[in-house]
């Protein structure tokens, strides 16, 4: 039975699990210094446990819980670690009202951040994985940008990057020494693997970054690189579609989005070459 307290700035999680490979993955994915003494109060209590019931004899299941509530249906036991990571995303997206949260990858070069919003399948996690491994770049999050209200500042929330299907092989090719989790097969997203971020991302997990650019990504195998600069109106509307808790922030949330749009370069980028996108960002945007 695993019971750990994990310091994932800006939150502390109490995590429990009776699934053996979940504990192994946690220790493989997260640096030792993030496992802290249980005397420190936790912000959120989450866990993933083997589900009870007759089904466990035929097809073992796992269930994610948050504060003793099970918000999702049970999943195959094989998905337990992935469901824990997704569950943590769910908890933060729904509970952390001190931030305006955008569904977006976010990486930074130094303290200059680039937001990479996009729907599932747009390639944002793949691009986030690629950029965060390049010299001088770091990961803030592959899933959500925690924006301090009415500022351009983003709080890092460094966690393993969720890779799906073909992107797993791409990452293995780019980073042969990358630390990867066990595979969760046949999830609703396909085969899923989590990638441990590089050391520089973990080391700078407390360092805020300032948003300089917003890039709406779309992967298209037929297009090497196509860049369109969006006007502020177009940019706002696209960004608003990726805002998770905008309605809960009222005027403050609106001001935050306006502030981001008014002070950032906004592009739509269709690509099939990650290196071309990196060159564009480094030479023309940052």
């Amino acid at each position: 039975m695993m019971q750990i307290r994990l310091n994932l700035p800006p939150f502390i999680f109490d995590i429990h699990s009776s699934v053996g490979f979940v504990e192994q993955n946690m220790h493989h994915m997260y640096p030792d210094e993030l496992f802290i003494n249980s005397s420190r109060p936790a912000d959120y209590f989450v866990g993933v446990e083997k589900a009870n019931g007759l089904r466990k004899f035929i097809r073992p299941q796992a269930s994610f819980s948050f504060d003793a509530i099970e918000p999702f249906k049970t999943l195959p036991l094989n998905h337990a670690y992935a469901s824990l990571e997704w569950g943590i995303n769910y908890v933060v997206a729904n509970q952390s009202l001190q931030y305006v949260i955008l569904h977006s990858g976010i990486v930074a070069k130094g303290d200059k951040a680039v937001l990479l919003p996009g729907p599932p399948g747009s390639g944002k996690s793949t691009m986030t994985a690629y950029l965060s491994g390049r010299q001088g770049w770091r990961l803030l999050s592959d899933e959500m940008a925690l924006v301090l209200p009415e500022t351009l500042k983003v709080q890092p929330f460094v966690r393993p990057i969720c890779l799906k299907n073909k992107s797993v092989d791409l990452v293995k090719r780019w980073y042969p020494d990358a630390k990867l989790s066990t595979v969760a097969r046949n999830t609703h997203k396909g085969d899923v693997v989590h990638l441990c971020p590089g050391d520089s991302s973990w080391q700078q997990r407390d360092d805020l970054a300032k948003v300089n650019a917003i890039v709406f990504l779309r992967y298209d195998q037929r297009v090497d690189l196509e860049i369109t600069e969006l006007n502020q109106n177009q940019g706002f509307m696209q960004l608003a579609q990726n805002a998770v808790n905008l309605n809960l922030h009222g005027q403050q949330g609106f001001n935050t989005l306006v502030n981001l749009i008014e002070n950032s370069a906004v592009f739509e980028v269709v690509y099939n070459d990650v290196e071309a996108v990196r060159t564009f960002l480094e030479q023309d945007v940052l």
């Binding site: 502020q232 109106n233 008014e262």
Partner: peptide
């Protein structure tokens, strides 16, 4: 909000 680049306005129902 009226955008500074002249691209129009956005209305937000809070």
């Amino acid at each position: 909000h009226k955008f500074s680049d002249g691209s129009g306005v956005v209305l937000y129902q809070k």
